[in-house]
Amino acid sequence: MLQVEDVSKRFGGVVANADISIKVNPGEIVGLIGPNGSGKTTLFNSIVGFHPIDSGSIRFQGHEISRLRVPQIARLGMLRTFQQTRVYGRVSCMQNMRISTPQRDERLRNMFARFPPEIDDRAEELLEFVGLFSKRHLLAGELSFGQQKLLEFAMALMNGPKMLLLDEPTAGINPTLINGLIDRLRRANAEMGITLLVIEHNMRVIMNLAQRMYCLAHGELLAEGPPERIQKDERVVAAYLGAH
């Protein structure tokens, strides 16, 4: 589904990503871990077209996407969520959901069209799914950080993506809520068929969730494999404990 081959990205003299290759198969849940500053978010940004890459190739469902811009890649069905939440703060949650419907056919007539009632039904269903149903008429900016993360997740689902890139979905979320979130991510994967690539610092979460993992350190790919193997990998442990 997603193939990243030998991608490099430099910022001035800093090598943020050096010849990174990862592969995500359809229907998988893949984890991406690594200490702070190891280049995880840079890799995400490269994949979704937020900045151009220096070398390498990124393919999504067989299409080369490394030269496309963010909205074009989003319209192909690959969405990302942000580490710091991003919602449309001065409109209500329902309105956030409505405008998150796919934007693949935006001719002038559609731009001025009303929202069909099915969209509201779907929006309510998904807000119920993430547990924000009763807050649906509140302004999104008034929600707590954790709730905004959930709203952002629901907005991404509203868009009906084929693949979701989640940047630390559990950061800043109340520990009692995290289990619910893991469950919802799994259901999105199993029931809606959405492939997931997840950056996560919470080891308990990612070991539970991911079927396969990649570990980055200092901009390089350090290890890959199933969670059990990554957990025992000496290089990974050393990277986290600072032996590098």
Binding site: P71, L79, R80, R86, V87, Y88, I99
Partner: peptide, 14 residues
């Protein structure tokens, strides 16, 4: 409205 509140997010949503 989405463009006003967060244009980067609007782009990221396609």
């Amino acid at each position: 409205n989405a463009i006003r509140d967060d244009e980067d997010k609007a782009e990221a949503m396609g």
